[in-house]
């Protein structure tokens, strides 16, 4: 059974069909990449899947449940987590606190207990701090565990978003251009992180322009162009597809 299924999905922005009649499925435990030229609708698709946007038409099933139109916090509770192409970091907090917010759903969120500062709340928070630090090391942020988020460089913030998303312990992790703006070494480290995440059984959905990365780590590739599915298949098949070559050469020179 598929973890995510999308059928007849459409999203219009005042006449622009950012996503048009799109259907596909993602199987659990795979690394699934979504590629396409700039403006193809990849980020819009992420926003639709995670509930940030409501579709103009079509349906989305996650883990066997129709989740069309659900709000993001609801989908997070069902096991979806993501990062953003344009950073969405909590700059008013420390790096560690950013990651701790990621575990929000796994904490005691009782208002009265919080107000009274009950010891169990503080104990749970201390344990969570350790877990968050472990996640930061996992994504290679060893040097930033004590840092304030607004003092971190771009590449580190990209990884901070991954750590935060992992703190939610998702079934499916959506990464929107995690390697954009990173140097080749940093980019290989991200490769590594994605591999390790997938090994733990998390389904990874990846949007990335770095073709080396996509072709190396994906089990399955979906190609979008003007909001439509151009083709999909294993990386080797997709790479040979004349339409894909045309779209990339035509679109980006």
């Amino acid at each position: 059974m598929s973890l995510l299924r999308v059928d007849g999905l459409c999203k219009e922005f005042g006449g622009v069909h950012a996503i048009a009649d799109l259907g596909f499925a993602i199987h659990p435990g795979t690394i699934h990449s979504i590629i396409g030229p700039n403006g193809a609708g990849k980020t819009t698709l992420f926003n639709l899947i995670t509930g940030v946007y409501t579709p103009s038409a079509g349906r989305i099933w996650f883990d066997g449940v129709d989740v069309t139109g659900r709000r993001p916090s609801d989908l997070a509770a069902r096991g979806m987590s993501r990062t953003f192409q344009n950073l969405q970091v909590f700059f008013n907090m420390t790096a560690l606190e950013n990651v701790m917010v990621g575990a929000h759903l796994h904490l005691d969120r009782g208002f009265l207990a919080a107000l009274l500062g009950l010891p169990r709340i503080r104990r749970a928070d201390a344990a969570l701090g350790d877990e968050a630090a472990r996640l930061m090391r996992f994504v290679g942020l060893d040097d930033f565990i004590g840092a304030s988020a607004d003092a971190m460089p771009y590449g580190a913030l990209k990884r901070l978003e991954i750590a935060r998303a992992l703190a939610a312990r998702p079934k499916m992790l959506l990464l929107d251009e995690p390697a954009a703006g990173l140097n080749p070494t940093e980019s290989r480290e991200i490769d590594n992180v994605i591999h390790k995440v997938a090994e733990q059984g998390v389904t990874v959905v990846l949007v990335e322009h770095d073709m080396r990365m996509v072709m190396e780590i994906s089990d399955h590739v979906l190609v979008l162009d003007y909001g439509r599915k151009l083709t999909e298949g294993r990386p080797a098949e997709v790479r040979e597809d004349p339409e894909v070559i045309a779209a990339y050469l035509g679109g980006q020179g």
């Binding site: 993501r82 759903l105 500062g117 709340i121």
Partner: peptide
């Protein structure tokens, strides 16, 4: 007490980025 708790962190997260707060639940 409230500020130092998960509730307080959630509040600050709302301030920092509403969409990012939503997608982690």
């Amino acid at each position: 007490n409230l500020i130092g708790s998960p509730v307080g962190r959630a509040l600050r997260a709302v301030h920092g980025s509403e969409v990012a707060a939503e997608v982690v639940g």
